[in-house]
Design a protein around this nucleic acid. Sequence first.
DNA 1: TCAAAAACGTAGAACGGTATACGTAGAACA
DNA 2: TGTTCTACGTATACCGTTCTACGTTTTTGA
Lengths: 340, 340
Amino acid sequence: MAQAGEGRRNGRVTIREVADDAGVSVAAVSKVLRDAYGVSDALRAKVRASMDRLGYRPLASARGMRGQTYTLGLVLPDLRNPFFADIMTGVNNALERTQYQVMMGISASTAKLETGVVDSMIDRQMDGIILIGSTESRESLNTIAEKKPLVTIGHHDPSAEAFDTVNNNDQQGALLAVRHLVAAGYSKIAMLSLQGEPSSILAEREQGYRHGMVEAGLGGAINIASATQVMRDVQFAAKRLLQGPRRPDAIFCWTDFIALEVISVATELGLRVPEDVGIVGYDNTMFCDFAQNSLTSIDQSGELLGLQAARLVIERINGRTAVEHFVVPPRLVARRSTSR
Amino acid sequence: MAQAGEGRRNGRVTIREVADDAGVSVAAVSKVLRDAYGVSDALRAKVRASMDRLGYRPLASARGMRGQTYTLGLVLPDLRNPFFADIMTGVNNALERTQYQVMMGISASTAKLETGVVDSMIDRQMDGIILIGSTESRESLNTIAEKKPLVTIGHHDPSAEAFDTVNNNDQQGALLAVRHLVAAGYSKIAMLSLQGEPSSILAEREQGYRHGMVEAGLGGAINIASATQVMRDVQFAAKRLLQGPRRPDAIFCWTDFIALEVISVATELGLRVPEDVGIVGYDNTMFCDFAQNSLTSIDQSGELLGLQAARLVIERINGRTAVEHFVVPPRLVARRSTSR
DNA sequence: TCAAAAACGTAGAACGGTATACGTAGAACA
DNA sequence: TGTTCTACGTATACCGTTCTACGTTTTTGA
């Protein structure tokens, strides 16, 4: 076991070899590497040339021992939801011209796994952490923030001090959805929410939904069902709603791919979308636009969220301590699934 | 900048503190950590207790300097394709009871970015690398394999010696698709393939498609179009096919989400699926099952592929050098999109 | 009963960078 | 002309582990 590892390590160029090649000290090379103070242009050029010639790449582990690893950790709840692809695009754009690299981990939407992933990112000396759709408590997040610069996406905590948050206005997004449905003539509007560890964005969306219903004088029709992200569970919940005594004429779903599944269930039950039941999703992912779905959805500009999160975490790495809470307004994109 | 980093590092428990707490040497603690030879049960228990009491976690960077980091790198081409979620499930299952952790990177399906991601994983001392849907050349892969244990998923190279491969039989998968379409009464069967850097799995699928067409006496109708993964591009290619002079009555698409897009385009053009045009996808991702899609697809057991890849890379880390090529047979799942 | 072997534990040199403390030369200032 | 800065380089301790080499105790075998 050690054998294979040892054999492979050979051939790796070290900072010492670069220093020898350039005829300077190790410290000088390190300075060039870090863009540190006290290097002349001539020396910099000489060192750069040697690095290129030898194909030198600094070892992140070694750097991590005393300085930075130039690695950002990004935790996703789930790989099936294409919304996260949009966020990643934004993150990558923000990092394009920096020397930072992102490594992703999956929390599978459970606090236990999420903690494990985050801990292992801290163990791996990530310089900063971006947490998407976290279900952790304020204290847990503060604990993480004590150790590493932290930014959350999709976690509402406007009074948080130790970490930054990036969000769309989920309450308003839900409100837009309800208003749109009401305007389209629906009145028995239900919401399908997420079951499991309580998440602040779901709380916000539920709040917005309630608000919208009351505003439209439909407070009596408020009806929030919930299901985990497991297929079978969603199908069951959707059937319950659509076959129950208080059958809704519209369902606002907390995320697109759940909405697509609800469309599927409705279709199988012989219900027509949008005539018999209107459906609204959230995130406006690429699948909404497919003709067979044509799903009305709330756009929360995932790419922008990712971009901002990356910007904020790098600012924190560079020393900012004042908290920042970034909120983008959501936008409703109407499609056929609600055009009654 | 250093300030923030320094302030945060404080409080981290080191192996020395554990050793002091347990009243043993640092080396002894390290041995316990690595399950190395020469520790009595009593010592092990004592050390474990101290580790728990102090909340000790070994620092990956420091471990990486001499030994392993217990981190596996996994490179995905794309975050939008839900197929990769299946693979990840398998990988995670395989790693459940080990101390390995996976970190993911995205190659965006370009060799340049892929090289960058892989290099940065090597810099970060990942113990092994799993590459999904790689478009790199044999030499590049060999170069990587020289440095780290490497396993590819979705890359055919049965004569590779330096790294393991895990695949489904793509040629057979395509063959199944064509045979199924022929049996359902389609004859002008086109294939929509992937444009860009040549990929061996696409080559295999095209080969299988050709083979199937010839076998059915339809050699003259062979028609392979291609498009990148960009939405607009796919739509354009689909329209070209469906509005062209040799309009096919069925299209075999290289992956599900492309097929869903083709269904969308066909629908918008007023064509009925499956009556006017039959559609087959590949990967049998969760979206195929939705009633509005009901997409016939080829299942390649993503979860199994992920599981095997993780197993193989760990075996290599543990010293195996003999090459292994794992191939799983694909399975056609018929749905409404081809039931003429 | 004694030598040899096995089991257990320790000391301390790596690993490849970073960053502090310091030396030296030339420029600027009085 | 000396003094004080500033710019540029260097030497080297240090980060938290691993792992080899070695010493000591216990067990085994004849």
